[in-house]
Design a protein around this nucleic acid. Structure first.
Lengths: 356, 356
DNA sequence: GTGAAAGCGCTAACAG
DNA sequence: CTGTTAGCGCTTTCAC
């Protein structure tokens, strides 16, 4: 990177003082009573020289970086990558840059990221918390660095947050299955203490309890978040084989749903003939799979917009006065019928029959 | 954000000079012959006070921000979000932060992003170019800001780049269809002058030309990148309806493939019974859809790693000596059979035959 | 209306 | 071995 033109160069070339130029740049010509003539001369040269101020210097002086940090769980995940997309878009509109990174649900990574972003003097952060992050978040509060929790809250920590009503989503999805005549509903989730997961489990259990069927606990399969895909898939396969009386499966996240579909293909169960399938989160696969899959969908756009707006409000009002703000958004139950085509084996049987 | 502890505070508390502390922080104790005792005292206090240097000040002084910019086409897209994930991971390992943003294929947005990232003094950039970006990129070259083009090149611009052999991918995929007995193969792509798209089209046309079938041009459907999903879907539906003799469809990108599946569902064509489908890029849907879909898959991990490594090499060797480096990676043809179940018409015919 | 100058936190000559 | 000091580019107070 060679010499960039600096405010000094501009001032020199115009035989003005740095101050004057600075005022013009920052749109304070009026306020500071700079003459129209001077002002437009400056603006012109700035354009001509393609000058733009050095952010680092500005930050060093003002303490405002016009940058926010966005920490998600996994950029490779449909939900989070789309959240990132919208947050970035909205932030850009408002003149902010975004530092983006994923934790992969690893507390060490998460802490490191928070540290790095603090060093980069972000004006605020959006954080999808992992386990063990309470202390770091409390430090942020102490240091008055605005932040908003995304997707999940941290028990015992009073902080700004935008989350989904996960309990309701899971409850409704389970009721949907029960209403359609499925009773033995398995629940596949990950081991996790994080609120979004525990809430989904609670929702499922509550709905099951309200039905005739008792003790759903044994219908719950928990896998580890960072297990390899193969491991998760084979767990699901075993689970299904060992529970032949299952009538439906409820996957608590999109990636579990994807693994689940793969597992069911491998054990040659088709849906919903052998086993009905529903999942939290929506994606292309669930929508277009045959039979398509009913989901509790998260309003991604709304979540992202509410979050970034809340953060920018905190940043720009400067003070985090009073109570933290908690937004709880509603999931949408998208009911899908397998209306388009019947599973092949069924057709096959029909054909065979017609010739027997 | 309140008072952060600065290097001055550390120095004062230890009754040392700022210089000494700075050397220790930057791991130059040895080089500068700082005593073991002093050095460890400093390190200790740093930990105790949770001190970490202010990046802005450091940047202002050294000109190195330890930040790179990553400009992709669309963060909401499977390919790019996974590229972003890997780039971010590798950059983190090497101590770099990543500014991430999408262009949505809009040249104005792209230019604006480049400008913003330059102001933020990124050490280098990874750019998925849009149209009309040549001038900006040439300025980057002039200013010796290292950058690597990703996914596509800019005609007439000699620059570092990591791209796929798109011609080969498309050629092979088309040949695959031809070899399997499909002749009338439609090609669905977007209007675009960008290399990755023109190359795919060339690959398709070249393969078609080598077959008996002539003039594939009329089998090409082009839609606009920023058309609404519904518009694209209905274009595909019309295309299929108007070309009843189509035997197969080749979608030039993952999102077109997804739209295509949706369109085919709506016109009630099933695959590959009525129409075989292949697509560029892989994703969960193509893998798990029944029948599953053969694809030319991009080695996402490899692309991302090669790109970030090339960029960091450029940054850290400082000079962009000599020729630009162009990496061309191989797509992988993932042939999928609807092996779990044969195409319906085949079964049907077999059955019929056995009774004739 | 405009300018001089201090200083944000840090690095790296240079001086001892 | 350690300290003094200049200055990176910018904003902003105070002076003219």
């Amino acid at each position: 990177m060679t010499k960039k033109v600096s405010i000094k160069d501009i001032a020199k070339e115009l035989e003005l003082s740095i101050t004057t130029v600075s005022f013009v740049i920052n749109g304070k010509s009026e306020e500071m009573g700079i003459s129209e003539a001077t002002s437009s001369k400056v603006l012109e040269l700035i354009k001509k020289r393609d000058y733009s101020p050095n952010n680092a210097a500005r930050l060093l002086r003002t303490g405002k970086s016009h940058t926010i940090g966005l920490i998600v769980e996994d950029l490779g995940n449909y939900f989070f990558s789309n959240i990132a997309k919208v947050v970035d878009l909205e932030a850009s509109k408002r003149g902010y840059n975004v530092f983006l990174s994923s934790t992969d649900n690893n507390p060490k990574t998460a802490k490191e990221l928070i540290r790095k972003m603090r060093n980069s003097s972000v004006d605020g952060m959006i954080i999808t918390p992992t386990k063990d992050l309470k202390q770091e978040l409390e430090k942020l509060k102490n240091d008055k660095i605005p932040f908003v929790l995304l997707d999940r809250i941290v028990p015992g920590l009073s902080a700004n947050a935008v989350v989904l009503d996960n309990f309701k989503g899971a409850f409704d999805l389970t009721i949907h299955l029960l209403n359609n005549g499925y009773q033995n509903i398995g629940f596949v989730t990950i081991h996790s203490d994080m609120s979004q997961m525990t809430e989904r489990e609670r929702g499922y259990l509550a709905a099951m309890e309200s039905s005739t069927k008792k003790s759903a606990d044994e219908l719950v399969l928990k896998v580890k978040f960072d297990d390899a895909a193969e491991t998760i898939i084979s767990s699901i396969m075993s689970f299904v084989k060992e529970n032949q009386d299952l009538e439906a499966l409820f996957f608590s996240t999109n990636y579990l749903g994807v693994h689940g579909i793969e597992a069911l293909k491998l054990v040659a169960k088709s849906m919903p003939d052998d086993l009905a399938v529903v999942s939290f989160d929506d994606n292309d696969l669930f929508r277009l799979f045959t039979p398509s899959i009913t989901v509790a969908s998260q309003p991604i756009n709304q979540i992202a917009v509410e979050t970034i707006e809340l953060l920018l409000r905190l940043i720009e009002n400067d003070v985090q006065n009073g109570m933290p703000i908690n937004k709880v958004l509603e999931p949408e139950l998208i009911e899908r019928q397998s209306s388009i085509q019947k599973p092949l084996w069924e057709i096959e049987q029909t054909l065979k029959k017609s010739f027997n």
